[in-house]
């Protein structure tokens, strides 16, 4: 095992544990949101190990630093600190969901273990892979249209959020 592999398992384990913590924590929604931050940061570290440097930075900046802050704000502003699992009959239905989900996951994992393509080691990356230069050149030549679309999408988000939230809450 190389250092990178060990780090991958550490961060992967951290991501899974904190993701479970987010979903299973019904007592404290703030703690859920903070677990999500841990997941995001661990995923950022895994992107680093996968040599996607720019994406790793943006993952932590936007997901870890911005999106979860927004969640945290809403949780704190509305004081939504608790929640409970559904009672009675619904619990049965949802347990069925859980069992089905885990069963499908096990299927996928078995299939992944057999896949020859994934079992093969990927070769060395080309020079400058995942750095700002390569990503930027690709983004602003081949995918220019996508960038402009993203900007329109963000405009829609600003306007939509403002209209939905503009009235005072209390």
């Amino acid at each position: 095992m190389t250092t990178e592999t060990i780090l991958f398992y550490i961060f992967g384990g951290l991501a899974v544990v904190s993701a479970l913590g987010m979903v299973l924590n019904t007592r404290n929604t703030v703690a859920s949101a903070l677990s999500l931050v841990v997941t995001m940061v661990s995923l950022g570290a895994i992107y680093l190990l996968l040599e996607a440097y720019l994406v790793a930075a943006f993952q932590i900046m936007v997901y870890g630093g911005a999106i979860v802050v927004l969640f945290l704000f809403v949780v704190m502003l509305l004081n939504l600190s608790t929640d409970e699992f559904p009672p009675g009959r619904q619990r049965l239905i949802k347990s069925a969901f859980v069992i089905a989900g885990v069963a499908i996951l096990v299927q996928i994992l078995i299939a992944l273990g057999r896949d020859p393509l994934l079992a093969a080691q990927p070769g060395a990356v080309p020079e400058g892979y995942g750095g700002y230069r390569q990503v930027g050149i690709s983004l602003y030549t081949d995918y220019v249209l996508l960038v402009e679309m993203a900007s329109l999408l963000l405009l829609a988000a600003i306007v939509g959020a403002l209209i939905l939230a503009k009235r005072k809450i209390d």
Binding site: L70, F73, V74, L77, N79, I158, K168
Partner: peptide, 20 residues
């Protein structure tokens, strides 16, 4: 543990969009 002004939320929205 009570409710606060929604303005903070508006700032956070703007922040997310402009961070992207």
């Amino acid at each position: 543990r009570r409710r606060y002004a929604v303005k903070f939320y508006m700032v956070a929205i703007l922040f997310v969009v402009f961070d992207v």
